[in-house]
Design a protein around this nucleic acid. Sequence first.
DNA 1: ATGAAAGCGCTAACAA
DNA 2: TTGTTAGCGCTTTCAT
Lengths: 334, 334
Amino acid sequence: MTTIRDVARQAGVSVATVSRVINGNSYVNKDTESRVREAIQVMDYEPNTVARGLASKKTGTIAVILPDIMNPFFSELARAVEDTARHHKFTVIFCNSDDQAPKEKLYIQVLQQRYIDGMIFASNTLDEEDIQTMRGHGISLVVLDRAPRRGNCSIIRSKNVEGAKTAVQHLLSLGCRKIAHIAGPEELITAQERKQGYLDTIRHLKGFDPALIVPGHFSISGGIGAAQALLEYHPDVDGIFAGNDLMAAGALKALHRMGVSVPEQVSLCGFDGVAIAEMTEPELTTVAQPIYEMGATAAKRLIGRIRGETEEPSVTELDVQLVERDSTKRRVRR
Amino acid sequence: MTTIRDVARQAGVSVATVSRVINGNSYVNKDTESRVREAIQVMDYEPNTVARGLASKKTGTIAVILPDIMNPFFSELARAVEDTARHHKFTVIFCNSDDQAPKEKLYIQVLQQRYIDGMIFASNTLDEEDIQTMRGHGISLVVLDRAPRRGNCSIIRSKNVEGAKTAVQHLLSLGCRKIAHIAGPEELITAQERKQGYLDTIRHLKGFDPALIVPGHFSISGGIGAAQALLEYHPDVDGIFAGNDLMAAGALKALHRMGVSVPEQVSLCGFDGVAIAEMTEPELTTVAQPIYEMGATAAKRLIGRIRGETEEPSVTELDVQLVERDSTKRRVRR
DNA sequence: ATGAAAGCGCTAACAA
DNA sequence: TTGTTAGCGCTTTCAT
């Protein structure tokens, strides 16, 4: 293994000079520089990231904490983060939290010991203390998708309330009269906001019934259970807005099993815009988030902060878009 | 930040002693040990992973190189690896290669500079030189799912040929007479083997036609295109074995669009056993691999090798299992 | 059983 | 503009 000393010797300069040309943070004579570069070539030198990390406390590594990489929404986010990070010569460590606070805390601790430069949190239970701890350790932080209670850090999210309103209005415009909502976990801000959008749109209309909101845990099986319960107690439901596509897919499955046809009897709309929404039959209408863009933006923002280019914490809200497919269909107004 | 020196001072011993109790690799007096442990408690000390890495060349980090984390097969693999790694106190770096050799080479290089302890390769283009390079750098290697041409390293895979045979035999037993195969990329060993299993089972039967093998690139869109082409030229196909579930899902979509009913007119069987296979309507019969187990086994094997517990490279072939669902159905023999 | 001290490979003052 | 050198925090001989 060739080290910086070998290169220095080869080029007839000191290690400091070699370090300078590598990092390009100090003036080096043109000639010396080219001698050094040549030596680097000749000796096939690659700086050792670990040594560099120990000396500078910067490792060129970021971590992304997400609930579960198997959830297609998060795997797309992860993909975007990794692509962007690699483009900027950063390496990414990934961690599944299952939305469990203890796991998140453990990760934070482990990652601090590794001189991680920054973290992207697409998971929930970050509290003020965690944020301060990380700040104290000089770890930059970007919260993605799920914002923390108090927002003194960079946040990338999309317009959940607005998107939910669009979805429900779409259902209304189709002629749906009794629209239910399959909600995500109450503790998740995204779920809260989508429910809020649903409520804001529908609360004042006649026929509104809070019992039309059922929990679906943001999962396929949750969606199945929710749709079953819903149709059992409210067989006249003619529209369902699910808080994410996974639940919508589950609901579709359940409705099919119960012999309820979509969209003829029930119009169904999801949220997220993941690939699976196109795999069902009928394909799912959904409120699409710019998932890849969210991940890419988060990574860019984080790296900007790490490099000291961006200063203050900023909140970015990305637009969502209704994608009409076969699971919603205009019906005759009664 | 508290360092090993702080702890040593607090406990009234040398840093070497502290290091010894942390690593438990040398005899330390019981009393001294408990004094040190207490000091560690009191001072809330956490060893610095980076410093440790520089001194020992072991970082407690493994990398997993996969084609694309967005592919549900690989995200499940990734999840299994991360769970297992965390359990053993390892951290995982993940890298998407898109099956492009240059990206893989770049990752190998970058990861070497980081004193990675080992890598899990679920990607393709690893050549003998790469393997030797990594060996030279003391990086352990496990190849997952896609074995390299020559196998002088640990390999975890599943029984592709056998699984494909099972699938085709299942189709035959149902009464299918004209069975097509949607194949994965020719350069991938998994795709080759599944095609092999198909051929071995069907080649000698009357009615076999090599034109019934069409490429589907292991992707949804590839499956769509393949099914379209297939039905156009061979409208009397009554069974399709797709090399993976993504292509099967795509084929199902295409068949539906063409008005061909599954399983009434065409029986369809996939391979992998990913979640998406249960989301379609009808649900897909598939040859399920023990995906999570594959990832977990790979991680365990790798960590075993890193710790010097396991010695020689070994090849593990896991069993696959036919999961019968609604996309295949017994038909009347003509 | 324990300590002293020499690195690991690099960065970053501080000098020159 | 360049070199010298003291760390970064830990592991690991080599003594004792």
